[in-house]
């Protein structure tokens, strides 16, 4: 501490030896040191006295060093909203941290949100849930993410101007930190437009909820219908697995087969259908043009070349084929 003061005294002397204007200014009697003022939040002075602009990560730096003051750019930095917390509401009163006067690292805050924290996930989450337990986070404690010890800050960058997990183009960076399988699937030839930034994981998943598969709606199909409502029916001729669960035939994260199908025709269809005649055909390609149903189960649209309305049909044509999704 002493050497620090000496350094600054030396700086003052250097300043006095500086430009004329400097001399003029230095000649003015020094005012007594003022108490630090709040920089962003009500009562933040006791924190921002040290965590000030000089201490902060610079906008020019890469995103390796979290900025403390950038919380001012976020909703948590909107002081006019009476609900906005201050530093200690989330980090705890942290008396030891505040009282420390040494040169090395001070004791940690009461609630520590750094990467290698010793504060339990439940305790860290408590800071957020004090305000954010409502809405689609009502079921958080029963969610798969919560029971796997994830903290809100495992995914959210609370101080960042742009919280990656909230951005369409960047959300997957966070999700793929754990969900490696989906990182591969989403890059397969047939996929939802997630890597293109038109959808996000949270378009389908409420990651704070306790629905099965943490979906935004109460079932797989209800979730799919939010964009694919034409599949909802009810149809005159329903295809049983379709109305039960889209994921029986589709892998929504991506596959090597068109339309996100889990397997190619006729192999996919033959996982349920075992009949005589053409439905049992082997997986082969025809050697030339044909309208023979025994040759067309694999090529092109395969079985769906004729069974076009595979999701269900509304035909009243008096033909048994209508009931087989061909009208």
């Amino acid at each position: 501490m002493k050497c620090l003061r000496q350094f600054f005294m030396l700086s003052v002397l250097l300043g006095l030896l500086g430009a004329g204007s400097g001399l003029a200014l230095a000649a003015t009697p020094a005012k007594p040191a003022e108490s630090p003022k709040d920089l962003i939040l009500k009562g933040d002075a006791k924190c921002t006295g040290c965590h000030d602009e000089a201490d902060d990560a610079k906008p020019t730096m890469l995103d390796l060093h979290p900025s403390v003051l950038s919380i001012g750019k976020t909703k948590h930095g909107t002081k006019a909203d009476g609900r906005t917390p201050t530093c200690t509401d989330c980090h705890g009163e942290s008396e030891k941290h505040l009282a420390y006067r040494g040169n090395d690292s001070p004791p940690l805050t009461d609630r520590d949100f750094r990467k290698k924290t010793k504060t339990s996930a439940a305790e860290r989450n408590g800071a957020c849930l004090d305000c954010h337990q409502g809405g689609n986070r009502i079921g958080w404690q029963s969610s798969a993410h919560s029971t796997q010890d994830l903290a809100c800050t495992s995914c959210h960058q609370v101080h960042a101007r742009n919280d990656k997990v909230m951005g369409k183009a960047t959300q997957t960076e966070t999700c793929f930190t754990c969900h490696k399988e989906q990182r591969v699937q989403i890059n397969k030839p047939s996929h939802h437009p997630v890597i293109e930034g038109k959808m996000t994981c949270s378009s389908c998943h409420n990651v704070h909820g306790d629905n099965p598969k943490q979906l935004v709606k109460n079932s797989t199909n209800e979730t799919c219908y939010t964009c694919h409502m034409e599949k909802r029916g009810p149809f005159v001729h329903n295809h049983q697995p379709v109305s039960e669960d889209c994921s029986i035939c589709h892998q929504p994260h991506g596959t090597n087969v068109d339309n996100l199908l889990k397997a190619r025709s006729p192999l996919l269809c033959q996982e349920c259908h075992s009949h005589d005649s053409h439905p049992g055909q082997a997986a082969t390609l025809p050697n030339g043009t044909t309208n023979g149903t025994g040759f067309l189960g694999t090529v092109g649209r395969g079985c769906m070349s004729c069974h076009t309305n595979i999701h269900g049909g509304n035909s009243t044509v008096n033909s048994a084929t209508a009931g087989r999704f061909r009208r």
Partner: peptide, 17 residues
Amino acid sequence: MKTMLKTFRPTAMSVAL
């Protein structure tokens, strides 16, 4: 400035700097 005390904020010394 984790170890810099709040008393060193906008003081005459820093003005000189």
